[in-house]
Amino acid sequence: MPPLGITPSQTVGPYFTIVLGQEGQSIVAGPGVPGTRIRVEGHVFDGDRSPIDDALIDVWQANAAGRYRHPVDTRDELPLDDGFTGSGAAATAFQTGLWTFDTIKPGAVPDPNGGMQAPHLNVVVQARGMLMPSFTRVYFSDDVEQHAGDLILSMVPPARRHTLIATLTTPGGEGDAPVYLFDIKFQGDDETVFFDL
């Protein structure tokens, strides 16, 4: 038992956009950052499948080489990219409830057993009416082969894995990034998988 008591979580409430999830923070990678440009967007749905239009989404990802900008990732043989922290935040839009990240597709990241994890974004969802953060991951529908060997997906019951996979809805074209859709669902038959972190 650790000696100090943890500070408990409380809801982010409806007014967090005073500081968090401000415009600009949803651009995880600007134009100069190496990698394949993608847009990832989606909704957060409640138990009635109504869009939650006051949710905060935080994202954390590796760069195109699969490296995290963090002291624990000591793989100096892989590059860090100027202007790319790997983190972003977005508030779901008033009424439509849509959130959007403009970023680059992350590279594969190793797992502790010597395998490679499929490209993924790490995501936390919070909102008014949520007392605790909900952690999930976004994988990409065109990486099916890599999903078969992904350690974390292997820990998820097969029938629920699809809730972690963003669907390619608009292929990339001339100067346009491909768009992936990732709806996050609370409650119901196809509730998104959330992780105990």
Binding site: V109, Q117, H120, M155, F195
Partner: peptide, 10 residues
């Protein structure tokens, strides 16, 4: 919630 191994991502 599903308990997972902590990887470099976590």
């Amino acid at each position: 919630m599903i308990s997972i191994t902590h990887t470099l991502s976590e």
